[in-house]
Design a protein around this nucleic acid. Structure first.
Lengths: 203, 203
DNA sequence: TTCGTTCACATACGCCGCGTATGTAAGTGG
DNA sequence: CCACTTACATACGCGGCGTATGTGAACGAA
């Protein structure tokens, strides 16, 4: 016997996992457009037939990869915000972590560069972008508690999210990511502190 | 005679203009990936030969279109900021205009969606994104005058720019762009007012 | 004016990548 | 044990891109 007989559902899960893993690597390195389906399915020890069977088309597989990464990001962010002592602190930490996560090439390329081009506005993605929802609920609670000024939580969440993403791109493409990251985080902190009700130009 | 004889340089300029115009329409409507070079060169009354001669490849033509739109945006923004009475007012107006401009489908698709995917980080584009530079210089001046708090102008310009872009995408994809636009502009204004030194929870 | 050169395209060809239609072996339920 | 479905692989055709080549018109020099 070559391989022990497993139930079919397990084999399927394995196949899907192999495909998403191989595609994820290809998308992250050469980008969506330059990733050949023949190539990365072969890397997974399969053919395009398997891909079309499970994911419909190239875009479908890309969606699956995006969803996977989004889940991972969400988990990591929740861990960070849970550690904080105050809600405001957690909020700030979470956003800064978001900026820093976007430094990772995989997230940079798949989620920030190719993602919007292939799937459209991130806010409209199937999984509804767990990150933005998290920010929104945090802002709503902070407003309720009187910590921040009276602003629309969702609108502000979008703005902050956009600022994070763009900052990350700036950092990732700069000559000295370390130094740029410091500047970006500092400015980002200042931007958010402007939302506090008792904002008094902190020294 | 079919056409009056013009000097060669004029004919070339005309050809380039026809190509960029046709490509611009195609890119704006069906997107970069789905725009067939054979199709839109034919629309311009030409063939792919002309395209490769003048722009090298599809990406090269896309760059030219992006540069053209960027110049137009820059001009429009300058007009707006010039009208304002104070520097701060001009700064705010310019940014809000930026958000609103991004509602236009052409800018939305070419500059915000496909642009980053095809050409990479907007901050690294050949023309160096005139908009960001404009914001940066404004922030530097405002800091000098003591209107805003002590922050790194370039870093803050990136954050604000990112917030604008993202807000625009949110608006453009929403069910009720008009209402969403109002919410976004209000939040955006609040975000920027947080930068003022004498920020005292206005309203 | 004329002739050689360069320019500004058009034409022709081949390759690669995607999608679909079809084949097939293994698994599954009755 | 058999009919049916599932999970892939294989085969085929088409469209899009890049390149190599062809061609007529514009320009400069004698």
């Amino acid at each position: 016997m070559k391989t022990a007989h497993k139930p079919r559902s397990e084999m399927v899960a394995e196949t899907r996992a192999k495909l998403t893993a191989a595609a994820r690597r290809a998308f992250a390195t050469v980008g969506y457009a330059n990733a050949s389906m023949d190539d990365f399915t072969a890397d997974a020890g399969l053919t395009r037939g398997a891909l079309y069977h499970h994911f419909g088309d190239k875009k479908g597989l890309f969606e699956a990869v995006v969803a996977q990464i989004d889940r991972e990001m969400s988990v990591r962010l929740n861990v960070i915000s849970a550690k904080a002592t105050t809600r405001w602190q957690g909020f700030v930490d979470e956003n800064i972590a978001y900026v820093e996560m976007a430094l990772e090439p995989e997230i940079q390329r798949i989620m920030l560069r190719d993602g919007p081009g292939v799937l459209g506005d991130p806010a409209q993605w199937p999984n509804a972008n767990a990150c933005i929802m998290s920010i929104t609920t945090n802002l709503a609670a902070l407003k309720e508690e009187g910590v921040i000024r009276d602003i629309d939580p969702e609108a502000m969440a979008r703005l902050i999210s956009g600022a994070s993403l763009y900052a990350a791109q700036w950092i990732a493409n700069s000559d000295d990511p370390g130094a740029t990251s410091k500047k970006a985080v500092k400015a980002f902190r200042a931007l958010m502190e402007g939302l506090l009700v008792d904002n008094k130009c902190p020294g």
